[in-house]
Design a protein around this nucleic acid. Structure first.
Length: 447
RNA sequence: GGCCCAGUGGCAGAGUGGUUAUGCAGCGGCCUGCAAAGCCGUGUACAUCGGUUCGAUUCCGGUCUGGGCCUCCA
């Protein structure tokens, strides 16, 4: 079978993908903290790892894709208080909105979407194991992971303990044995969400949920763990520490894949900088598929500079593909060139280039190429609509009027009354309707 | 300060030690009543300075510029 290659952050190199069990691929991606609607930066991993999972499903008989929902977090508490709604209402509504955005982006739901609050017991069990094995300690109602209890801590982010301390940006808290130690469990006051535990009423630290939930659904060791570049440290580093120390394993995930940032004028798009655009705001202007395409135009590890103009350009490129695929006949075959591009560390720009090559063949009258184009694009989660729906939108009330106008124009053309024909066409153009005269008659589209 | 990434034609963005990326936009042609769409053609592109090499945009080193992580972050 085709060999797949992925860049592994653990090795900082591209490696051949060798599954732990080639009958069942297991992959985990970090999902959103549900306190606000996602922005374009959050959408990038959603779309790219969706492509990754589609590629894996194409090559392997079974894939289990887990993406969590973080529904316990101090940002959530703060936002709920700010808006005067309950935490549960905020997290549930935000989760629903997240699903709406994902669907618009053409991202298939993960197989399992666990919520942190449903797995508190598993986290407590794991923390208990870490204490028992001498990797964690309790202090003033907190439980902390003792970083120097792990000999090879820091492998993923390539950071040594000395560097961390030298960095001096780690939180210095009196009850920590060492500054780099991080929280597994912290106490909650009466106004904060909390659960009973051996250490009193409290709530989990940020990193432990992914360790507990990935183990619950994928096992102690699994194939791929994915997320944004900014999660390498501390989040993923600490997940590895917790998981390996609790389970006594030599690895957590075999491959670690990280997507690059979405930038705005060269700067990272982020909540704190305030330079973000919500996915919903893009969807108000452009189809979700154009947003999806735009996110696939850059390699997933490279920075992607976002602009509305970029989405507009993606829309134009999609128009080309939709036109070319319109005359598809029969069942198409997923293109090998596209598959090998995707199998080469998820090279979506090259895969899209291959789609455009198929489109050119299709436009020269190759119906087979058109069918292959459609099948290939759909494997990537593109060209999912009918071509007519893409160009004309859902059937609207004015469709009949447009068709009447086209008929009137064609009559005028038959009379060689081009003045009248052009007048009708100009009128439609003014309404945002473009006409194209082809061998099979006149077709129209919205512009 | 430590660690890390990037710099490609008007724009976006792949890739390669010597030969076409691809898309969007532009220009010329074909087609069309005219358009549109499509097809064909069209751009002395690889930050900079050295080194290795028969040959470097591609490898190595320095410089400059931009960005990121080290604190919540996709």
């Amino acid at each position: 079978m085709t060999e797949l290659f992925f860049h592994n952050t653990l090795k900082r190199a591209k490696e051949a993908f060798t599954p732990i069990d080639d009958q069942h691929i297991r992959i985990y991606a970090c999902g959103p903290t549900v306190y606000d609607r996602i922005h374009v930066g959050n959408a990038r991993p959603v779309v790219l790892f969706d492509v990754l999972v589609r590629v894996l499903r194409h090559h392997f008989p079974k894939v289990t894709y887990v993406r969590n929902i973080t529904d316990v977090d101090d940002k959530i508490n703060a936002r709920a208080a700010e808006e005067g709604v309950s935490i549960r209402q905020l997290t549930e509504e935000t989760t629903k909105a997240f699903h709406v955005d994902c669907a618009a982006l053409g991202a298939m739901p993960p197989d399992i979407e666990p919520r942190a609050t449903d797995h508190i017991d598993a986290m407590i069990t794991m923390i208990t194991a870490l204490i028992t094995k001498g990797h964690a300690y309790e202090a003033e109602g907190h439980v902390l992971f003792q970083v120097d209890s792990m000999a090879d801590y820091g492998q993923l982010s390539r950071r040594s303990l000395d560097e961390l301390i030298a960095g001096a940006r780690v939180e210095v808290t009196p009850f920590k044995k060492a500054p780099a130690d991080f929280v597994l469990w912290k106490p909650s006051d009466d106004n904060q969400p909390g659960w009973e535990s051996p250490w009193g009423r409290g709530r989990p630290g940020w990193h432990i949920e992914c360790s507990a939930m990935s183990a619950a659904y994928l096992g102690e060791e699994f194939d791929i763990h994915a997320g944004g570049l900014d999660l390498i440290f501390p989040h993923h580093e600490n997940e590895i520490a917790q998981s390996r120390c609790a389970h006594g394993t030599s690895m957590m995930a075999r491959y670690w894949m990280h997507n690059g940032y979405v930038t705005v004028d060269g700067e990272k798009m982020s909540k704190s900088l305030g330079n973000f655009t919500r996915v919903a705001d893009v969807l108000a202007k452009y189809p979700g598929e154009a947003m999806r395409y735009a996110l696939m135009t850059a390699h997933y590890r490279a920075p992607l500079d976002f602009s509305m103009a970029g989405v507009a350009e993606a829309k134009s490129a999609l128009d080309t593909l939709y036109r070319a695929s319109a005359n598809a006949e029969g069942d198409g075959k997923v293109d090998d060139g596209m598959l090998s591009a995707l199998g080469d560390d998820l090279n979506t720009p090259n895969a899209l280039a291959r789609l455009h090559e198929l489109a050119r063949q299709a436009n020269k009258g190759d119906a087979k190429a058109a069918a292959n184009l459609k099948a290939s694009a759909q494997m990537m989660g593109l060209l999912l609509s009918e071509s007519s729906a893409w160009f004309q939108g859902d059937a609207a009330d004015d469709d009949a009027a447009i068709n009447d106008a086209i008929a009137a124009r064609n009559e005028a053309k038959a009379r060689k009354d081009y003045g009248e024909a052009d007048r009708i066409r100009d009128e439609l153009t003014a309404q945002g309707i473009a006409l194209e005269d082809g061998p099979d008659g006149t077709i129209w589209r919205r512009i």
